[in-house]
Design a protein around this nucleic acid. Structure first.
Lengths: 194, 194
DNA sequence: TTTTTTACTTACATATAAGTAAGTATATTT
DNA sequence: AAATATACTTACTTATATGTAAGTAAAAAA
């Protein structure tokens, strides 16, 4: 019991650092992430962050790793749903970024700052996007086979279109409002109807 | 004659600064833009840039202003074309970013760094995107009316989908290769066919 | 109870960023 | 020919960034 609490205290700061770092990256990109912002918000010193994550790259990699982990858990959690339900769940999950002060998704943040992030983050982001794109391709392919979705052309092309439209839509919503994102979602769904 | 040359020399550095700044912003975002990079490439000193553009915001605004100007010239130049030709021209023009070392478009760069750019750049980017989206909406609407395009739903929704997919596609191409962007373009065109 | 580990803080090093003030050579205008 | 404007450079200021080395209090292990 006291052991449990201690374990919690031990990892509390470390977890909070990653949580805040994630937030900052989704709001302003990896280059905008600074030890100052994190330490001041947590009431600790910069060096405390370096203790847990020796350099910024380590922290950035951990942020992406946890994001991938979250998505894998999400995929597992909705694996039993119908095709349309899966699609809706994915879109609903994505829309949360918008509601959280116009955050964008990790893929979009990594891609737009691709030339400014360390090599290991680049490959981690690539791997992450491949997971998402493959998941979406499978969903579209099996959905069409079972007559839940209707669309022309290759499922992988359609998956490219939809994932990039969603990621781009989150970004553009910052410029012209959240309606833009919602319009994209409704258009995607409309065009998948049988 | 000598007057012309002098005029050219007078504005040469200033133009080169904006050109380089544009390139840097499309490659790494506005926060990655530094006076050092520009001055070293042009063989001048940082203060020379401050002479032409007192602060970074002035330079950033001029970059967007010139980008909008270019797009307006482009729209004017292709205004006489057929619907499909206009669409192809727009997509071809966009694809040049990819070929130029995976640059992204100005809208995508502004949107992903939205929280890191000055307020005047934010509104300039918003105005720019509205111009593009309206142009695209008009193209789709008149194209459908004249039976060149076929699609379900509202033209403005379809325009949102396409513009965000293209901007997002440029970014994602950095992660998984240019085929991703080409797949999006071919899917968009396939889905517009009558 | 002594030793060691954990999770920090203090203090500092180093780099790079934007921005400014004052000086200067050349070209242009008067 | 003298005055002025242009397009810079030199030299400096200030702020902020990542990162490191050494010290420390409390908890855990031996």
């Amino acid at each position: 019991m006291s052991n449990l609490n201690i374990m919690k205290a031990r990892t509390d700061t470390k977890e909070k650092i990653v949580g805040l770092a994630t937030d900052i990256i989704l709001a302003g990109g990896y280059p905008s992430l600074s030890y100052q912002q994190i330490s001041s918000k947590l009431g600790i010193k910069n060096a405390a962050i370096h203790y847990h994550y020796p350099n910024k790259e380590d922290l950035g990699i951990e942020v992406i790793r946890q994001e991938v982990e979250r998505f894998e858990n999400f995929m597992a959690a909705i694996s039993g749903l119908e095709h349309w339900e899966k699609l809706e769940a994915f879109m609903f999950n994505y829309r949360k970024y918008l509601e959280n002060q116009n955050r964008i998704c990790m893929i979009g943040a990594s891609a737009s700052d691709y030339n400014e992030i360390p090599a290991l983050m680049q490959t981690a982001a690539t791997d992450y996007f491949k997971i998402i794109k493959n998941w979406f391709t499978d969903l579209l392919e099996s959905g069409r086979r079972e007559n839940a979705f209707s669309f022309r052309g290759e499922a992988s092309h359609k998956a490219s279109l939809i994932t990039s439209a969603m990621a781009g839509g989150l970004q553009h919503a910052r410029l012209i409002g959240n309606d833009h994102y919602d319009a994209i979602i409704s258009q995607i769904k409309l065009e998948l109807q049988v």
